[in-house]
């Protein structure tokens, strides 16, 4: 009897861990649809610029001369360059690596971890005897800008195999956990308070947060990836940022991108 009770207790405690990503995603989308009834979901891929007409017009003017254009061109050259062994990036990816960003990140069952596009690029380099690139560096920014550019217009199609559920769940926990001295979760600003004004800044919806990376941010004066933004967000609330491509950030990206399933990719992009 005692064993039965214990089993029941264990079962009921572990029950929430048996996540249903698709149910999560539908509830997530429903939240933003009811928060912004006049804005279609796809529009959120432009972040805060979907929520404020004046800011949008300013931004569209900036986009007339896209600040990420050079990165795309440089990335295309880099991507085509052969490794010392004669192979190139194209050999490591489906469709030669073009138009595939909608499938990243994915859960690698053999490695038992989430693989982002950045990590896949470095794994490819290592496989062919090349030193990995700095995740925060310009070369990685250029390469991913090119790969994102070739994926524009595709829709996110992230999958979570049963083996990937715990990584997905860890990312979900990170998204909803308060952190830092100021005690904010990602969700505090970009779900609970989405559309509100933080001083003169309008808080964007997380349903568009995965579509447009890497991004040229004028504040950074360079192109950077989603994890650079994670670090910035964490530091803004007084938490220490984690390393780019750390397991926690890869899990967060996995959850966040799954929540963006069906959203159209529009990277690289520019932001203030």
């Amino acid at each position: 009897m005692k064993i039965l009770v214990a089993l029941l207790v264990v079962f009921s405690v572990t029950l929430p861990a048996l996540a249903d990503p698709e149910a999560d995603r539908l509830a997530f989308a429903e939240f933003y649809l009811s928060r912004f009834p006049s804005i279609e979901l796809q529009a959120h891929k432009d972040g805060a610029y979907a929520l404020d007409q004046a800011k949008r017009e300013q931004w569209l003017e900036m986009e007339d001369f896209p600040p990420y254009e050079i990165a795309v061109d440089e990335g295309e050259l880099l991507y085509a360059r052969a490794f010392d062994n004669g192979e190139s990036y194209a050999a490591c990816f489906d469709q030669g690596g073009l138009g595939i960003k909608q499938n990243y990140p994915y859960f690698d069952i053999e490695r038992s971890e989430v693989i982002t596009l950045e990590m896949a690029l470095n794994l490819c380099r290592e496989k062919h005897g090349e030193a990995p690139l700095d995740y925060a560096g310009e070369l990685m920014g250029n390469l991913t800008a090119y790969m994102a550019y070739t994926s524009r217009g595709n829709k996110f199609a992230i999958t979570v195999p049963p083996e990937g559920l715990s990584a997905y769940e860890a990312g979900k926990q990170f998204f909803y956990e308060r952190r830092g001295q100021l005690n904010f979760a990602c969700s505090s600003c970009h779900l609970q308070s989405a559309g509100g004004m933080l001083r003169a800044e309008i808080l964007s919806a997380s349903i568009g947060h995965a579509t447009h990376w890497p991004t040229y941010r004028f504040k950074w004066e360079q192109i950077g990836g989603l994890h650079k933004r994670f670090i910035e967000c964490n530091e803004q609330v007084g938490a220490e940022g984690l390393a780019q491509q750390s397991p926690a950030y890869r899990n967060l990206e996995y959850f966040l991108t799954y929540m963006n399933n069906g959203m159209t990719l529009n990277g690289p992009a520019s932001r203030k």
Partner: peptide
């Protein structure tokens, strides 16, 4: 003081996050 508060936060949040999922 902040180290104690950050650990208390981590401890509390390991469960509290569930209340925020829509």
């Amino acid at each position: 003081l902040t180290a104690q508060a950050s650990l208390a936060q981590a401890n509390l949040e390991s469960q509290a996050w569930r209340t925020r999922v829509p």
